[in-house]
Write a protein that binds this DNA or RNA. Structure first.
Length: 896
RNA sequence: GCGGGGGUCGCCUAGCCUGGUCAAUGGCGCAGGGCUUAGGACCCUGUGGGGUAGUCCCUUCGUGGGUUCAAAUCCCACCCCCCGCACCA
């Protein structure tokens, strides 16, 4: 990336202030008695790369808010840890070892050298440490106000393992940990669940439970048909098998089943006991009859290519009236000279009434989509989808089946399952909702994991408690609150362990590792502890359960903990006090993608571990994603920009901060555009110049009424800024504190007729407020101008002063000037006269302020003469008799 | 399918909850003008159409209806876009 000379001076300023902050340790926050605290956090990032624009938006919002709270006088704690739990780091290593070009390129983009990459291949810890160092460095360069004494990493740290272990023991005590079965999408080659990110194909596909209906041969051997639509059993005309597939006879849970060979391993993975007895030639099944339960009739088995042996059992029931696939296969069979005999006298059966369709919706769909053959897979899929959805939602069972007559299809489905179960003719099987291919190119199927461990988020008491608390919490923006409630509503048991990846061993079953989302719910409390681990070299072994009980819960006597851990009593007490001081978390901010899991778990777990609401989270702020020039960020588009390059080469920290943070608010996605940087930069440059002049004592003017008007405007800006920033609406806030204040300063100087005629005190005040209000977004630059004006560092050291209320009357004076200017402009345009202007003021007050902008008017519009009269002045020049039209705040105008 | 968020004057965006002060905020872009010093990045003006010595009229806020003296804002229907749906950071 090219280094820009233009912004070099800003970068210099930034390095300077970063150094001063660090030397003064201003962001190292400890308890201060009687000073209100604010504990703010950003979810720790996963460290398999360096920070880029995507991370930047959320985290800079959090940093800006931390700085804002400091400005209001809070003792702000903003710590930052890092996350290494889970699979991706191992995945990176594996790909590097395989020589994956894209992975190598990504690592290099972020600044890893060939040497580093060689070490990555061998040393996981090095990968983690390398990227953590990089993160810390980059965040410092971007001006983050973080207390770095408290940083830590998960998964590879024994201290943290202890913490997680303790937490899980607590959860288990409270009965929030359960064990059970769970279907997952499984790669038979990798022997592990295949998550969305590990898929070559099939992102978003999930396990779906199918019904198996047990049709039977004479000898009661089962012909198990798999279906999502058991209710259509009443419209069965025949069954299908694939004549070219491999089928077997097998013993399944003690019964004899005929199924496709492909189905065997799935059934096994779904906890069925399966023994294959022998192969079965599918052709030998053709024409054989099977008995259909419930409707108690025999139907023939027929061959068709529509059957996929690798889907379900490879045995399908045929409902030509309501399933497009079946309909087309049915027609083809009827036309087949060899096979048609089996369907003699058999026609599609109409069983569901569907408005807007004939008796046979499947037939309608076939015609609508112009399907000519059973090989037109894509069209058949669409047709099936259409019919399935419509029938499910609005279809009603017809009267020809007594036990279902009049039922909605969705109800009939449940009813049929029940009835089949009574007859022991029902079973279930899981399939993927669509084809899923693992990264290793193996096709995946559904496996039911046994002895899986869960966090029981479905626990009703827990849910109710969470919801009750969420009513009291603050959410930014408010709209997101609903999503949190919905999330709690649909949360079920969540699998909290995995067999692979980095992480903490599950304390009750060491074969399992606690998965990443589950080890990250209450770690904000760990920031308190980490400071002491770093400072006093506390060993992992000393961090016993009693230790955590005491420090975090205030349980147990300190003497007892001293004897168990060997730690100093004073240190323990200090930790406990510090926890008491800083907890709860006052604000947690992140992207909206985390709402449905992490942020909700964060609430759940705090309520589970701490009994007192005193320690429960107070507020959550959520924001959108980041686009670059209107496009989604992605590796393939090559628009992932490392933060460091933007900050140290292309622009500067402040420019990046203000440009990204103000680019969107609420739930909107941010859009990074290079060209917008300039609208900030040009104004900063000018403020800098003005500040220099003020520092050099250039302004010599008196304070006049205009000064009041301008300061009154500042008050308005201040109040708006405060309100918007408080709610993390940085865009709206900056519109006031940055753009509007800038133009106010600009206007002030214009009215005064140049900077030397401005009043120094007013100008200084305007710039100081500019510095304070914008310091959350552009901390370095504002620090610079703040100190240029002779103020002591730092800009946030002294709380910002409330400016008092806006004066309505003064406001009207301002409006009067604005209106006057626009009226004059209009009149000049219309009359084409701009030699002389005569203004007739309503009263002395109006007259006075008009006199103040007299020169400004002459300069701006090029008048040779500007006369201002009181409206009652009988000697006034007034050829058009305008002066009687003057109103309060609305002088009359005459042009020549 | 379930759930959430949206569609505003070239682009991005404010307004909508609490109807009128809304031809509708700010930025970007574009056009015109200014500058003996805040100086190449600044300032001002314009940016739906029309009219007039100033606060006027017409047509606009996804589409189609409705409520109302009055709707970008409230109600109904429809169309379209984005996001999440879990063992994954």
């Amino acid at each position: 990336m090219e280094e820009s000379k233009e912004y070099a001076w800003l970068r210099e300023i930034e390095r300077k202030w970063q150094k001063k902050w660090e030397e003064a340790k201003v962001f190292e926050t400890d308890p201060v008695e009687n000073k209100p605290k604010f504990f703010i956090t950003f979810p720790y990032p996963y460290v398999n790369g360096a920070p880029h624009l995507g991370h930047t938006f959320s985290s800079m919002r959090v940093d800006s808010y931390a700085r804002f709270k400091r400005l209001l006088g809070f003792n702000v704690l903003f710590p930052q840890g890092f996350h290494a739990t889970g699979e991706p780091i191992l995945g990176v290593q594996e790909r590097l070892n395989k020589g994956d070009e894209i992975q190598i390129k990504t690592m290099k983009l972020y600044g890893a050298t060939d040497e580093d990459i060689e070490r990555f291949k061998k040393d996981v810890k090095y990968i983690v440490e390398f990227w953590i160092n990089r993160w810390i460095n980059d965040l410092k360069l971007a001006g983050f106000s973080i207390d770095w004494r408290r940083t830590f990493v998960t998964a590879i740290d024994d201290h943290y393992h202890r913490f997680v272990t303790w937490q899980y023991k607590k959860l288990k005590e409270k009965d929030y940990i359960k064990q059970g079965r769970h279907p997952v999408i499984w790669c038979p080659h990798c022997q592990s669940p295949t998550g969305d990110h590990d898929r070559l194909k099939g992102e978003g596909e999930t396990p779906v439970e199918f019904s198996i209906i047990k049709f039977r041969f004479n000898d009661s051997t089962v012909f198990p048909v798999a279906t999502l639509r058991p209710e259509t059993i009443v419209g069965v005309t025949n069954a299908w098998i694939n004549p070219n597939g491999k089928y077997v006879l097998a013993e399944v849970d003690g019964e004899k089943w005929v199924v496709s060979e492909d189905a065997i391993k799935k059934l096994e993975d779904q906890l069925k006991i399966v023994h294959v007895i022998k192969e079965v030639d599918p052709k030998s099944l053709i024409g054989k009859k099977v008995h259909v339960p419930l409707i108690e009739k025999d139907v023939p088995i027929l061959p068709s290519e529509i059957v996929d042996t690798d889907f379900g059992t490879g045995c399908v029931m045929s409902v030509p009236g309501h399933a497009p696939y079946d309909y087309i296969a049915f027609i083809e069979t009827k036309k087949d000279p060899e096979l048609s005999k089996y369907l003699e006298g058999i026609e599609p059966i109409s069983i569901i009434k569907l408005d807007g369709y004939s008796d046979l919706p499947a037939k309608d769909a076939i015609e609508k989509y112009g399907i000519k053959s059973s090989s037109e897979d894509e069209k058949l899929e669409d047709a099936t989808n259409e019919i399935y959805k419509k029938e499910f939602h609005v279809g009603v069972m017809k009267d020809n089946v007594l036990f279902l007559a009049g039922l909605k299809v969705s109800d009939a489905k449940e009813k049929v399952k029940e009835l089949l179960q009574e007859k022991k003719a029902h079973d279930t099987m899981w399939e993927t909702s669509g084809v899923v291919i693992c990264r290793c190119t193996t096709k995946c199927h559904v496996k039911i994991l046994e002895n899986q461990w869960f966090i029981d988020y479905s626990n009703l008491e827990w849910k109710a408690k969470v919801k009750k608390w969420m009513k009291k919490m603050k959410f930014y923006p408010e709209e997101i609150r609903k999503l949190f409630f919905d999330t709690v509503d649909w949360l079920k048991e969540k699998a909290c362990t995995r067999k692979t990846g980095l992480g903490t061993r599950f304390p009750f079953d060491k074969e399992w590792i606690i998965e990443p989302l589950s080890d990250s719910t209450i770690y904000m409390s760990y920031y308190i502890i980490q400071k002491y681990i770093a400072k006093h070299g506390i060993k992992a072994e000393q961090m016993t359960d009693e230790f955590f009980d005491y420090v975090l819960l205030g349980k147990g006597g300190v003497k007892e903990v001293v004897s168990k851990t060997g730690l100093d009593e004073s240190i323990l007490k200090e930790m406990r006090n510090e926890f008491e001081y800083f907890y709860p978390v006052d604000l947690r901010g992140s992207g909206k993608d985390l709402v449905q899991h992490h942020l909700t778990f964060f609430i759940y777990h705090h309520l589970a571990i701490w009994d007192n609401e005193k320690y429960w989270p107070r507020a959550i702020a959520v924001n959108g994603f980041v686009n670059v020039a209107g496009e989604k960020m992605s590796k393939s588009k090559g628009n992932i920009i490392p933060l460091r390059d933007l900050v140290t080469k292309k622009f500067s920290a402040d420019l990046v901060r203000i440009n990204i943070v103000t680019s969107a608010e609420d739930l909107d996605d941010a859009d990074w555009r290079d060209e917008n940087v300039n609208s900030f930069y040009s104004r900063m440059l000018n403020i800098y110049q003005i500040t220099k002049k003020v520092a050099e004592d250039v302004p010599k003017g008196e304070k006049t009424k205009i000064d009041d008007v301008i300061v009154n405007r500042l008050k308005k800006i201040y109040h708006d800024w405060l309100e918007h920033t408080e709610a993390l609406r940085f865009r709206s806030a900056a519109q006031r504190s940055f753009f509007e204040l800038y133009s106010t300063i600009s206007r002030y100087i214009e009215y005064k007729g140049g900077i030397e005629n401005a009043n120094k005190e007013t100008l200084k005040m305007l710039i100081e407020y500019f510095a304070k209000m914008n310091s959350p977004l552009i901390p370095h630059f504002t620090e610079e101008i703040w100190s240029m004006l002779g103020n002591k560092p730092f800009v946030f050291s002294e709380p910002i002063k409330n400016l008092g209320n806006v004066d309505k009357k003064t406001m009207m004076l301002e409006k009067m000037i604005d209106d006057l200017l626009s009226d004059v402009r209009k009149l000049i345009d219309l009359s084409r006269k701009n030699t002389k202007i005569y203004l007739y003021a309503f009263d002395d007050e109006d007259k006075k302020i008009l006199e103040e902008i007299q020169k400004y008017l002459a300069r701006t519009f090029g008048f040779k003469e500007v006369k201002i009269y009181h409206k009652d002045n009988k000697n006034a020049i007034d050829p058009m008799n305008k002066r009687q039209k003057a109103k309060k705040f609305k002088p009359a105008i005459y042009l020549e």
